[in-house]
């Protein structure tokens, strides 16, 4: 089980959290002008690296904060987001 460092509550068990996938996916600035391909990329394409991954977690059974961390997808270790 992962020990996840919530910025508000400190390190807590993974079961208190919900995963939010890749961080930094912003809603398009000009949605009316997007092509189908651009929409598909926004809706469906996410990075899937073997290595460091910047991702979102939600402390659903705690303080209910969303936050971003860097986690390694092979070792599962966390590091401070640069």
């Amino acid at each position: 089980m992962l020990l996840i460092d919530c910025p508000h509550c400190g390190p807590r068990d993974e079961i208190e959290f919900r995963y939010g996938g890749q961080a930094g996916i912003a809603y398009p600035d000009t949605p009316g002008e997007l092509t189908d391909t651009e929409w598909a990329a926004y809706v469906f394409l996410r990075d899937n690296p073997k290595g460091w991954f910047r991702e979102r977690w939600f402390h659903v059974h705690g303080c209910r904060t969303w936050f971003t961390v860097d986690r390694h997808t092979v070792t599962h270790e966390f590091r401070q987001s640069p």
Binding site: L2, R18, K50, E55, V74, T75
Partner: peptide
């Protein structure tokens, strides 16, 4: 599945 992305 486990919820997070992993190759581990």
């Amino acid at each position: 599945i486990d919820s997070y992305n992993s190759y581990g």
